[in-house]
Design a protein around this nucleic acid. Sequence first.
DNA 1: TTGTAAGCGTTATCAG
DNA 2: CTGATAACGCTTACAA
Lengths: 338, 338
Amino acid sequence: MPANPAPVSRVTMMDVARRAGVSQPLVSLVIGGNPRARVADATRERILEAARELGYRPNVIARSLVRGRAYAIGLIIPDLSNPFFADVVRGAEKVAADQGYAVLFCDAADLGAEHHLEALRARQVDGVIMDAMGAASLEQGALAGLNVVLIDEPVAAFHGVASDAVEAGRLAARHLLELGHRRFGFMGPASDVWAFRMRERGFVQQLRSAGIALESDQLRRSAATVDGGRAAMRTLLALEPRPSAVFCANDLMAVGALKACARGGVRVPDDVSVMGCDDIEAARFITPELTTITIPARELGARAARMLFRLLNGEHARSTRPLAVTLAARGTTARAPA
Amino acid sequence: MPANPAPVSRVTMMDVARRAGVSQPLVSLVIGGNPRARVADATRERILEAARELGYRPNVIARSLVRGRAYAIGLIIPDLSNPFFADVVRGAEKVAADQGYAVLFCDAADLGAEHHLEALRARQVDGVIMDAMGAASLEQGALAGLNVVLIDEPVAAFHGVASDAVEAGRLAARHLLELGHRRFGFMGPASDVWAFRMRERGFVQQLRSAGIALESDQLRRSAATVDGGRAAMRTLLALEPRPSAVFCANDLMAVGALKACARGGVRVPDDVSVMGCDDIEAARFITPELTTITIPARELGARAARMLFRLLNGEHARSTRPLAVTLAARGTTARAPA
DNA sequence: TTGTAAGCGTTATCAG
DNA sequence: CTGATAACGCTTACAA
């Protein structure tokens, strides 16, 4: 059995200083790599060597305390089991790691955003990235005084990056219309998550401008999960007349919808066309591959991180325009049946 | 546009002390919640109220410095785009958050484990969880002096938790044998990741004890991804005679294998049975649903975290036996064709 | 060029 | 019970 807890780093600047026969602050000067530090080359060498021999590693905590910067950011997402958010995390983590920042990962599925925000505050994080967490509905002041970048949830009071969710809905509608569909269905969660609302809006708008109105029974509210999609599709399939094309608020729902079709003996895309939104990797696992709207999840995370760092550096973090989304026409959509 | 960087927490214990008319250390005593702190009820109340009014929040960084504990752990995984690891992360994060620990998330896909370990060290993390990162092949000393818990990679020198990977392979073989298959294929990555090696070993062993040997051409080396699986399956299908059952080292490969079958006009499971391993959620997205071995990813992460905390508390972290894996017999396997 | 002194926000150890 | 006083490891003036 391995040995027990060992202190991580016992070697301090003081140790290095003693070994090199200099004062501790001088070590700080050299190690800190301050470019304009004028230290005799000989001493510098001596210090660096002493540090190397001792295996010295700077203590970020101590540095944080004195500099008032934690060199860490918080990242809160609704649920890592949705691959879409996993990509957002990857994008943000990469950028942060490149900058030498740590990412304090928080999944709000269990503990709730407020709780995590409290914890992040206590850790003095330099900023927080939140994805689709209903920032508007957070307890008053949960975000006060924090450097925040919101993903896919434009709120005037905060910085943020977003995908072009309305366009996502429009693209879906356009694609389906072009295939000759005239009778539609839509499914999305009841929650007030911005991206879902906008996707729906874009979809409905585009249909309307083609002279097609959606009755309320063509518009199903259900959880944004596979099970939710399955349930919603069942009721949609029971409609009379039955929609020939269905747009799902995200890919997980679309997968559920497909399952419901398979179970109900409804052929996709021959009898009914199904579209998702997000373009998670699994969209191409299924057969036929899922027609969907590609949302650049990784880029969303990466941009949010970049924007946050710009903020932290006092640069003007101009809010960029929505990230472009694109149609990924694949196998679950086809011309409307005659 | 929102306002610029604001210091996170300006209120210190000193402020609270002044407001309550007591000394700062006394505030620490009260706030620290030390149960055996004998403080006059009146003063305690006064302090707590002052803290509330000022909106005081403890500064974890300062506490960390003096206590020599960061109350944070590092979590390094190979690649978050594999949903299996996302589940591991979820499990570990939940446990850590419950304990008031922060999780410094590190994806080794881009920067490499060594780099992240260095960064985690500098942050004085109390411990590190690593999943399938080839700890054995890490640069000498990269883990030295760190409290480490390894997932799915038993190394004598470190604590760890693992799934029963050999049994996973055996279960797959047994299932396929029971279905009457006699001619097999296996695909796995060339890397020396423990879990993959053991899955293969269990599979091969079980077949051998049934009197069946695998020729080298029935054993394909390929990346543990969808593309890798597709490529491997292509060559497997070209074999003469062709295997009637194929076990893939993980679900992503199996998905790729399925794609290759579809493309090659090979019916699953009628012509050939395909099995995966992991049981990621997407295993049930496809049709027919993927027969696979369920590896309790979340539990793996959760246990690793629990074990790490036991370690940190100086408790004897008994290494538990491998986590049980189970067969999930679904639609991609069937009786061997006549 | 280098050393001294002060302080970041806490906790912990002692005397009063 | 309470309150100085001294760390924790580092950065940053300011002296020498």
